[in-house]
């Protein structure tokens, strides 16, 4: 597709892995408060392989979150299909956990009870959840904070708790919508490293939306760059650097620059187009 893709694929593509999620010709538009229809996604198609970590990146308003909501089953496409294991996604389910920018922990439950809540939904009995919840909390280094209320945790710890709760559902697919977007740079880096470790161990299929190029390249097997609204895949980069990665890896740095350049051009193009068609979008 592009030269950059060819040069970066040091490790051959794992073609043997079956497709987990499939987006086929999806269109989606919204009606704004003033009644105008806005096309959020236009003819979006891509696949995510089982156990693959895909980052979606693009200018703000490009429909990244919409793709995620479609995969979660919180919204349905106007046209086309979103499939999991070949079946259309029609509603949310515990096989797909979603992480938000807001950790969305239940404030009336303790940290452990928040994880237990997810476990109860998977069908575990009341007597079995306590130790299992502690196991997940240990994975995100929150064992010592299990009995605290969410508001007693720092922002970063709340995100870890939300991750533990999402993992406790043992989902096939993890979906994340800019989960670290509201954190400071240091905390974000710490959590990105932790997420990489946890994911390397568990190997869930992961679709991660971000507008942070460095974050995308650091975490992903594949970065899909979306166009400005209406969003459509422009380019994809396969990141083959072995894990655990560090932010200093030369290859990672090179791809970050490439994507940055690409995104900047796209934003510029969109801005120019919008300037030519005042009143639209």
């Amino acid at each position: 597709m592009t030269p950059s893709r060819a040069t970066l694929s040091i490790v051959p593509e794992p073609a043997d892995r079956p497709v987990k999620l499939s987006v086929r010709g999806v269109r989606k538009s919204f009606t704004t408060g003033s009644g105008t229809r806005i096309a959020a996604l236009e003819d979006v198609s891509f696949d995510v392989a089982t156990g693959e970590f895909v980052c979606l990146i693009g200018p703000s308003g490009c429909g990244k979150s919409t793709i995620l909501n479609l995969m979660a089953g919180l919204e349905l496409p106007d046209e086309g299909q979103v499939l999991i294991d070949g079946r259309p996604i029609v509603e949310p389910g515990p096989d797909r956990a979603l992480l938000f920018q807001d950790p969305a922990l239940f404030p009336w439950l303790s940290v452990r009870q928040n994880v237990e809540y997810a476990l109860r939904l998977t069908g575990l009995g009341p007597g079995e959840t306590h130790d299992t919840a502690d196991g997940w909390l240990a994975k995100v280094h929150l064992s010592a904070f299990a009995d605290l209320q969410p508001h007693e945790l720092s922002g970063g710890m709340r995100h870890r708790a939300a991750l533990a709760r999402a993992l406790a559902c043992q989902p096939d697919v993890l979906l994340a919508d800019e989960p670290f977007g509201a954190l400071d740079a240091q905390m974000r880096e710490i959590l990105q490293k932790e997420l990489q470790l946890v994911w390397t161990e568990l190997g869930n299929t992961f679709v991660f939306v971000t507008h942070n190029v460095r974050e995308a390249v650091f975490l992903a097997d594949r970065v899909i760059v979306l166009s400005a609204r209406p969003g459509t895949p422009l380019e994809e980069y396969r990141i083959s650097t072995p894990r655990p990665r560090s932010f200093e890896d030369v290859l990672v740095a090179k791809v970050v620059l490439d994507i940055h350049e690409h995104l900047a051009k796209e934003v510029e193009r969109a801005a120019r187009e919008e300037g030519l068609r005042p009143g639209l979008a």
């Binding site: 509603e91 949310p92 389910g93 969305a104 559902c169």
Partner: peptide, 18 residues
Amino acid sequence: VPPTLTRAARTMGAKGWT
């Protein structure tokens, strides 16, 4: 009730009366 909470619960599989 914050929609983020109900959204989170729905993605964990909670629906209806639960």
